[in-house]
Write a protein that binds this DNA or RNA. Sequence first.
DNA 1: ATTGATTTGTGAAAAATTTGTCAATATAGA
DNA 2: TCTATATTGACAAATTTTTCACAAATCAAT
Lengths: 208, 208
Amino acid sequence: MEKRSKIPEPTVARLPIYFRCLIELKENGVAVASSEDMAARAGVKASQFRKDLSYFGEFGIQGLGYPVSHLLDRISSIMQLNKEHEVIIAGAGNLGSALLNYPGFQKWGFKITRVLDNNPQKIGKKLGDITIEDIQDIPKNLNSSIGIIAVPASAAQQVAQTLIQSGVKAILNFSGKKISPSKDIVVRNVDMTHELAILTYYLSVENK
Amino acid sequence: MEKRSKIPEPTVARLPIYFRCLIELKENGVAVASSEDMAARAGVKASQFRKDLSYFGEFGIQGLGYPVSHLLDRISSIMQLNKEHEVIIAGAGNLGSALLNYPGFQKWGFKITRVLDNNPQKIGKKLGDITIEDIQDIPKNLNSSIGIIAVPASAAQQVAQTLIQSGVKAILNFSGKKISPSKDIVVRNVDMTHELAILTYYLSVENK
DNA sequence: ATTGATTTGTGAAAAATTTGTCAATATAGA
DNA sequence: TCTATATTGACAAATTTTTCACAAATCAAT
């Protein structure tokens, strides 16, 4: 595992889409799918699907198509979805709770192991099976490499630092506040307010 | 309002980032900011910031920079963030509740006016100030142009249809299921599971 | 074994997006 | 008023990403 550096990021972002399509096909008992089939399901061009895969190897059979099960295994392995990942959620508010119970996570192998907060009212309370812990008391070397920031914008940077200190290597940030980049830490930002704003922009151009 | 068609979508997606930076600058009492300042805050190159703005007009003063307040007004108006937007949430589960209380929405002028569900256990119950309504009973002509889908994947397509029938023109879809595109309806998908998968991919290439 | 119908993988072309550069222009100070 | 400094807006170049198009490969049928 060393040479697959320069994969375009749009390609990486499409892999989960393909993964989802393949699961569906497998559940439907489809054994083989052509790039046209896959592309139609995924909402992309067939040539794009083939090009995307080509960065990782050759998975198809010319004249036939792609063996669903095999391709699923391969993409699974490329994205590391063949193993379980422990995830820490920082922020036991509405969003944190929603994420804890988000059905998709478990299905894809993401297991929430801890929920943190700094509110004394919440610390010690249970959220499902999990007891909310004081974010201050978090040990240094956890083996969760993924952290989710579901705290208010004002606390985001501080929380990020804490997570990183406890060994988190990848952060999914819902706070809306940009986190100043740290070496070797991968961050993705999801900003739901931005998404709504993008919608209203397009609404206004549609009704030109 | 008619000619601003071909704006690159990455440009549109950056406007909310600029918007957020400008709010911060204004709150800090900064009157003028250069493209360098703005770009550093937004995490982009200065030339990109200027290029992005150039699609919409000229907002800066050469030798000086951009008057924060004026630029804020302009971007506000371009993105329609100078008016309030009514939003319907479909799905009164954990995610729906989280979105209802999401502090960012109100601040940017998005007002949740209705929460819908199909679960008889939930219909009639209150969620904050809002009474959960039966999604079947929704009238045809609401003046909310934005709907949020926060239901399980299996129900997503059906719910989308219902929302569209009641006048929704833009959909923010959290279900993970692709919604088959309808004419004149803008859809954006947020898939949190995909985001985690993208993180695990990058984790594995980082540790190459 | 040969033919015909498919469909992949890929190199090259096209399109889209980002970045660099600089003339034009505004401000502030002498 | 003139000069030095700063910074925009836009054009051009560079880079990235998508799309095209076709040779090579596989299968099924004769």
